[in-house]
Amino acid sequence: MPETNKKVLILSVNDEDKDIVFRPADTLLGVLRGKLGLTGAKPGCLNGDCGACTVLVDGIPMKSCIMLAIEAEGHKVTTIEGLINTKTQASFIKHFAFQCGYCTPGFIMVCHSLAEKQPHADKAVIKEWMQSNICRCTSYQEIEEAVASILAEE
């Protein structure tokens, strides 16, 4: 079925269904920020390189700048706003795993998914997953400590 004339999209975001008027060319990042006011996912490179825009789709990290909003229909989207009071968030605060904080939501999303999917991940797996994100302030050591503490708890 062509979706050409579809003007309203129902997106499940942070366990709530949202009706959104959209263009098929809208990225998930654009819709989350521009239509839903969820500004936690950050525009960085817009190219799929930096990871600042990472959200979870069915629990899997996705760079929302390289995903169309319409592709998320029928899936559960989780943004940083959906992780309030989680152990992942607390651990990043405890370990001061940020400086300017711009990249932090993306790191937290990847870390949260990793802890859920692979709670016993070894160092190589942690490195592989976390390499998807870039921190220009180079808080990598603190980020590594935060991630390690969450996995250790799991």
Partner: peptide
Amino acid sequence: MIPVDFDYYKP
């Protein structure tokens, strides 16, 4: 933002 419009089909 993608500056052009396109239709989306999912056969």
